[in-house]
Amino acid sequence: MIAQNFEYSSPASLEEALQMMAGGDAKILAGGMSLIPLMKLRLATPGHLVDLSRVPALDGVTEEKGNIRVGAMTTHFQVESSALLRARCPLLAAAASHIGDMQVRNMGTIGGSLAHADPAADYPAALFALEARVRLLRVGSDRTIALSDFLVDTFTTVAEAGEMIREVIVPVEEAGTGVSYQKLVQPASGFAIVGIAARIRKSGGKISMARVGVTGLGPMPYRAVGVEKMLEGTAGTADDIRKAASVVADGVDANTDIHASAAYRARMAAVYAGRAIQAAVSRAA
C-alpha cells in the first residue's frame, strides 16, 4: 500500500519535460492507473517520476488533414466523451468506454496505457483496427511509427530511454464505416479476457475493407489480418463472418490463467470476433 520514495518533477512544458527525461533514468507518470498500484505493491520502484499532467501540449483531441491526433495525456473519459471522436472515430471512443471504471477513466490516459503495453488493455484492439500511429519524442528526435512497430512484446515497446509518447494518430473514419468493440470481461479486474474491435466498409454490397484488432488473447494485441482477408470481397453473410472469425486465433499462442484457459480464450476470440464483425457489418452503410 506504500510506495518506495522517489524524486518527483512536474514540468510545465514539453521542452522542460523532454529535458528531464533526457538523462534516461526518469519514469513518466501519466494517469498513474497502472504505475501507481505497482509502486504501492513495490513491484515498481522508480527513482524519479516526471508527472506530465501539467504539460498542456499533451492534452486534447484535434483533427488535421484526415487524421485525428489524440494527445498522450488525454484521459479515457475525454476520449469516450469527445464529440469529435464520437463523430469522426467512434471506435476509439467505444473502446475507451470499456476501460476500467468511471474513476479510472477520469485519470487514466491513452499515452500511459499504450506505454504500459498491457497485453489485455482495451485500446490496442481498436488502435490496431484503426492502423494507428504513435508519435514519439525525445530531445533531438521526433518519430512517428505504426502501432504494430511500437508494441513488441508483453509490456514491451520500442520506446527508448528518454523517449515519450507525444500523441496517437488515428484516421478520420470514412462515412459509412461500421465499427464495434466487443469484450469478454474478466469479472474481477475488468480487463479483457478477449476484446475484439472491428471496422467494416461496404461497397456494392460487398465488404470492401475489414480491419480487426484483437486484445487479451496472446502475449500482445495484434491485427487479425487473416480474418480481414477472408472477409474482404464477401457479402458479409452470417456464414462469411463465422468462417472468417474462426481463424482469428490462428498462429497465436493463447494465454492461460485462472480465469480462462488457452482453449477457451481462443474459442471466445472467435465468438467475439464474430459478434464484433457482425455488429460492424450491420452498422456499415
Binding site: M1, Y8, S10, L29, G32, M33, I36, P37, K40, D51, S53, F77, M102, Q103, V104, N106, M107
Partner: peptide
C-alpha cells in the same frame, strides 16, 4: 470536479 480514486494518486499530483 472529476471523481478519482485517491489511493491511486500522489498528494503532489493534487498540488
Amino acid at each position: 470536479g472529476k471523481a478519482v480514486k485517491s489511493c491511486t494518486m500522489f498528494a503532489v499530483q493534487a498540488d
